[in-house]
Amino acid sequence: MAGHRIFQMSFARVYPLYIEKVEKKGRTKAELDQVIEWLTGYDDAALAEAIARETTLERFFADAPGLNPNASLITGVICGVRVEEIEDPLMQKIRYLDKLVDEVARGKKMTSILRGA
């Protein structure tokens, strides 16, 4: 999937959609930020900077301080594909994030979403 167009999409473009999705289900932006930060290692300031700079998803994950070591525990189907079977590392990270956002929106407990962290 090298060069997939989603890689060049701005994180600032998808972030409001994530917020809308979780808030529509009664969850908060703070909970969303918590799972993004858990997955990527960004803190609040770095996350805000990535949004302000309209960083691409490719750059967002490349610049991430570090993917959480428990990210491989994220399993399930997103967009009809099992996240644990995605071969492209960048696409897998994007889908990990999508899966976490879905879990927040579905009302899962944060300890479960954060894989026991």
Score class of each variant (00 low, 15 high):
R106P: 00
E58Y: 12
G76N: 08
N70V: 00
L73Q: 15
L67I: 10
G107N: 07
L90Q: 03
V77Y: 03
L97K: 05
S72Q: 06
R95Y: 15
L67C: 01
A52W: 01
L57K: 06
G41C: 14
I51F: 07
V83I: 12
T40I: 10
V81H: 04
L100Q: 03
Y96Q: 06
G41M: 06
I86R: 14
R82H: 07
E49A: 13
E84C: 10
Y96C: 00
A45I: 13
K93V: 01
L73I: 06
F61E: 02
T56L: 11
E37A: 04
V77R: 09
G76W: 02
L100G: 04
T40F: 11
P89T: 09
E58I: 11
V101E: 00
E103A: 06
E49S: 05
F61Q: 05
V77W: 03
I51K: 13
D44N: 09
I74P: 03
L47I: 02
V81F: 02
L97H: 05
D98L: 06
I51M: 07
N70K: 08
D63M: 12
R95T: 12
A52S: 14
A48V: 13
K99T: 01
R82K: 14
E84A: 14
M91S: 04
L100W: 00
Y96K: 01
Q92I: 11
E54V: 02
D98M: 10
T75P: 08
Y96M: 02
R106T: 08
G80M: 10
E87I: 09
Y42F: 14
L57T: 11
C79P: 00
Q92Y: 11
G76T: 06
E84W: 06
F60A: 01
D44C: 04
P65D: 08
V104R: 00
V104E: 04
R59W: 01
G41Y: 06
L39A: 00
D98Y: 03
Y96T: 02
V101L: 01
A105K: 00
E84T: 07
L67E: 13
E87G: 15
A48F: 06
D98P: 00
L90N: 02
I78A: 13
G107S: 07
R82L: 11
Y96D: 01
L97N: 03
A50T: 07
T55A: 03
R59E: 15
A105D: 01
G76E: 09
T55N: 06
Y96V: 01
A46G: 15
N70Y: 08
C79N: 09
P89L: 05
D98H: 08
A46I: 00
P89A: 09
D98W: 05
L39N: 04
N68Y: 05
P65V: 11
F61M: 12
E85I: 04
F61Y: 11
T55F: 05
F60H: 01
E103P: 10
A64F: 13
E85A: 12
I94F: 07
R106E: 15
L100F: 05
V81I: 07
G80T: 08
V77D: 07
T75R: 13
L90V: 09
L73K: 14
M91D: 03
D88H: 15
E54G: 14
V81C: 01
G66V: 04
A50R: 04
D88W: 12
C79Y: 12
L73A: 15
R95E: 12
E49C: 00
F61D: 02
T40G: 09
L97S: 04
E87K: 15
P65F: 09
L90H: 06
E54A: 08
Q92C: 11
D102F: 11
